[in-house]
Every structure is written in structure tokens, then in C-alpha cells.
Design a protein around this nucleic acid. Structure first.
Length: 422
RNA sequence: GGUAGGGUACCGAAGUGGCCAAACGGGGCAGACUGUAAAUCUGCUGGCGAACGCCUUCCUUGGUUCGAAUCCAAGCCCUACCA
């Protein structure tokens, strides 16, 4: 099975710039994919790109992860309906460190290995580029008709918000990245999500015009769940790979909650599990969907990959406690470990004891306002140590605190909050 | 630079002197049902308050008026077409 077949079978293939790519991949190629440095942590939404690179590296190709330090300063208009906030150079620098750490969970950067991955930052070659350089050396290879015809441009021009010159030029920069990597590393393939098609072809065309050589582009589909929502967000919040931003527990839970209709596809995309194993799990979903066996495997595989065995153990233990409902028997120290990454707040004893529960919830910041906290209680959505709070006047007492200093609050079914009292 | 249109809550969008904390839709939150699902149904969704209610909002700043999201003036921003 060659790598393109693997991509096809794992829903990682959408399109390629030329059928010649199949033959080119018979020999080791140098491949790159870009990542936005919008945060100091990658997100679940980046998994597809990461997995595609990982498959390529495992197949013996040399992979380059490009962090868009320069392009991040501009903002990619693809798939965005509005102009983005621009990042500061220092911010990008900080984000780079985190991103490298995240990638190292999936890609081998070790200099000792036979085929180490490379991390580059396009700010390094753009920082000294002047506007005149760009116009003379790069801009003249770009034709207006083509640029205006790009989907990302057309869509934005049709929208009410229009598009700035800055964003319009984005494709030139990304196109130049490919050219630079071709010259520097002999990079001959760029991969990306299908929204990157226009930016990728900008690069393949630039290389062809300047060097007369053919380089390739390949895209994979944007992953959506079966209800059409873009993969990687939970309640509007991105799922980060950094445990400080998304706890082990939340990370694990995000995948555990995958819909039946999506879980088999996700296993193919996001894990390296062999197809036989995935077929078994598919049968298991059909036979007993309520067991969510496939979801558990998916959550385990990804949590282990990103957070290691220890992170997985914590996530599972937290899951057991939170859904088993047995909070009483636990020591405060145990609770703190399990809820280490759950939102928390520390209040003084006189802010808590004897006060109505909703006021404590508001004071702790679990709800945005007292009104919201009141609503939560009135609707029966607040739980203290897994026991539903009945009635708005319910006050907080000493007996609600584990060892006099901790209480586990829950809003709704799955939103936990750790209240600490000093 | 000209002409026209526009800026309302998380988003979209009504409202064009009092009945407006502001219709409706989406989103979000909560509940019921469930498999920690999906689908469906119900309630809530500016702040404070148990509640009558009170307070702060409709781009900004001034003004007219008993009363302004709504009228006037200036400014800022956006969009389209023209230059």
C-alpha cells in the first residue's frame, strides 16, 4: 500500500496538483505543511495536518513543519470571513516554542534519528525582505487575474466586510515560502487542508515560473462532524494540546463524546491503528453503541499520544470519579489531583460559609454574574459534590467542604469547578 | 474626492419619538428523555434584586424634547458604485 492509498483510505486525501505526485512519492521527498502561530499551543484542529506529516515521515519522507511567524503577522484570509487580529513578533516567538513541543509528540525531531523532522519559521527569511524586494523578485510572477480568482479572495470580496490589501498579499507570502523551501531544502510537496488549495497552488506556480521545475501540492478534507460542525471545538472553545489550556480530562472527554456516526472515520484519521482493528471497533459500535467502545479507544489513543500514559491515567481516574458520583470517600489531596486542571477559585471562609450557594458560584467566577448563577440554581443545574442544589436559598455549610477546604461544584452535566477555601 | 447605503445585545436582524432591556432567528446555558449520545420537547439568555421594581445599554460626542435606539449637528468606522 503506497502512501497515497493510505491517505485515501484514512480520509486524508482530497486533491493534488498533479497526478505525477503518485510517482514522485515512490522516492523519498521533502514535504512541508504550515502551522499558524496564533497560540502557544496547537489544537485538535491541527491534528489532521500533524497526522498527515507523521504518516509521511513514517514512510521515509523528510518533513518540514513551517511555523508562520511572518504570515501569522499578516493573517490568512482562507476560510475566514473577517480580518484577523494581528500578532506581535514577540508573541509569535513565544508561540513557536509551544508548537514545537506539541509537534514533537507526533514527529521525530531528534537530531540522532535517521530522518529527523525540521521546524522552520518563515519570519526568518521574511524579516529582512523589503517591500521593494518583494515586488521585484516575487510580485512580478503573480498575475492579477489568478490572484483575484482565488476562492479565498473571491469569497471575501463578496462578503460585506471586504478585504484589506494586507490579507490579499497573503498568498504571495505563502507562495514564496514554498519557493524558499524548495531552494533551501529541495522541498517538493506542500500539504494542507482543502482551504489551503489557493495558497498551495500559488507556491507550485511560483516555483514553476522561477525555476521551471514541477513541485506538488496535496490537500486533505477539512474534518467536520456529521452535523457539519468543524472538528476540534468543544462548546466554542478550541481543544488544545497543551495541558495548561485543556486539561487531560477535558481532552479525553472531548474524544470520548464523539458521535457514533463520526467515530470510525476519526479513528482512521487521528490514529495509527491498523484497519483490521478499526473494522473490529466498527462492528462493536454497530452491535452495542451504548458501550462506546470505539470512542474509548479513540480517546485513549489520542490522550496517550499527546499526554502520555500518566496523562491518560489522570483523565481516566477523573472520568471514573466524576461519572461514578463517589466524591465523599475521597481525600482533599486526591480531589486536588483529579481536578488539577479544572477551573478553580480560592475564596476566604467568610465568603463561603453561610452564604447562598448561587452567591458563592458568582463570587468564585464559575458564573459570569449573580444573575447567571441564580438562573443556574433556579433551573436545577447546580451540584455541590454531585448533589443537586434544591432551592435558591440553599446555603453553603461546613459539611459541604471536604477537609474544610474543598468543594466540587458542577454546572449542568459536565462542567466542573473546584472551589478552594482558605 | 463624489454619490448612495449602513453601524442595535454573543452573531444575524427588526424597531424610525413614549406601549423598548429592545421583536424574530441562530448560538449559548439549564431541565426532561438518553448511552456522559444523537434527535426531540420545555425554560432561561444586560446588571442588581426573593419580588413590585431599580440601574446601565442601541458607534462616539454634543443638542432638540416633558420624554430619544428612533429627530438634529459634528466626528469616527464600514460597504457599494463612480473618480
Amino acid at each position: 500500500m503506497n502512501i497515497l492509498d493510505t491517505f485515501q483510505a484514512r480520509h486524508l486525501f482530497e486533491d493534488m496538483t498533479s497526478p505525477g505526485l503518485a510517482k514522485a512519492l515512490d522516492k523519498p521527498l521533502t514535504v512541508y505543511a504550515g502551522f499558524d502561530p496564533t497560540s502557544d499551543s496547537l489544537q485538535a484542529g491541527n491534528f489532521v495536518t500533524i497526522m498527515a506529516l507523521a504518516h509521511l515521515q513514517r514512510a521515509g519522507h523528510r518533513v518540514i513543519a513551517l511555523v508562520g511567524g511572518a504570515t501569522g503577522l499578516i493573517g490568512d484570509p482562507s476560510g475566514k470571513s473577517k480580518e484577523r487580529n494581528l500578532l506581535s513578533a514577540e508573541q509569535v516567538e513565544r508561540n513557536l516554542v509551544g508548537i514545537r513541543e506539541n509537534l514533537s509528540r507526533f514527529l521525530d525531531f531528534s537530531p540522532d534519528s535517521a530522518n529527523p523532522a525540521i521546524l522552520v519559521n518563515n519570519y526568518d527569511w521574511f524579516k529582512d525582505f523589503t517591500f521593494i524586494d518583494l515586488l521585484r523578485d516575487v510580485g512580478r510572477y503573480f498575475r492579477m487575474g489568478v490572484m483575484l480568482g482565488k476562492d479565498s479572495v473571491k469569497k471575501r470580496m463578496e462578503s460585506d466586510d471586504g478585504m484589506s490589501f494586507t490579507e490579499f498579499c497573503y498568498q504571495i507570502l505563502q507562495g514564496y515560502d514554498f519557493y524558499h523551501l524548495y531552494k533551501t531544502y529541495g522541498c517538493a510537496l506542500q500539504i494542507g487542508g482543502s482551504d489551503q488549495w489557493g495558497n498551495i497552488t500559488a507556491g507550485t506556480e511560483l516555483v514553476r515560473r522561477i525555476c521551471g521545475e514541477e513541485v506538488y501540492g496535496m490537500t486533505f478534507p477539512l474534518v467536520c462532524d456529521s452535523t457539519g460542525k468543524k472538528f476540534g471545538k468543544s462548546e466554542g472553545n478550541a481543544i488544545f494540546l497543551d495541558a495548561r489550556k485543556t486539561s487531560y480530562y477535558d481532552f479525553y472527554q472531548f474524544f470520548l463524546r464523539t458521535l457514533d456516526a463520526d467515530v470510525i472515520r476519526y479513528l482512521k484519521i487521528f490514529t495509527f491503528l491498523p484497519f483490521e482493528r478499526i473494522a473490529e471497533l466498527e462492528a462493536a459500535v454497530m452491535a452495542a453503541p451504548e458501550k462506546r467502545e470505539a470512542q474509548q479507544v479513540l480517546a485513549e489513543e489520542l490522550t496517550r499520544a499527546v499526554h502520555g500514559e500518566s496523562g491518560l491515567a489522570i483523565a481516566r481516574k477523573a472520568t471514573g470519579v466524576l461519572f461514578g458520583g463517589a466524591i465523599e470517600g475521597l481525600a482533599a489531596a486526591e480531589l486536588e489531583a483529579i481536578f488539577a486542571n479544572v477551573p478553580s477559585a480560592t475564596l476566604s471562609a467568610d465568603q463561603v460559609l453561610g452564604k447562598p450557594a448561587f452567591e458563592v458560584v458568582a463570587a468564585a467566577g464559575m458564573a459570569a454574574s449573580k444573575g447567571e448563577a441564580r438562573r443556574l440554581v433556579q433551573q436545577g443545574g447546580l451540584y455541590i459534590n454531585n448533589a443537586r442544589v434544591m432551592g435558591i436559598e440553599r446555603a453553603f455549610g461546613a459539611s459541604d467542604l471536604c477537609e474544610g477546604r474543598l468543594a466540587v461544584l458542577r454546572g449542568g452535566k459536565k462542567s466542573f469547578f473546584l472551589l478552594k477555601v482558605r
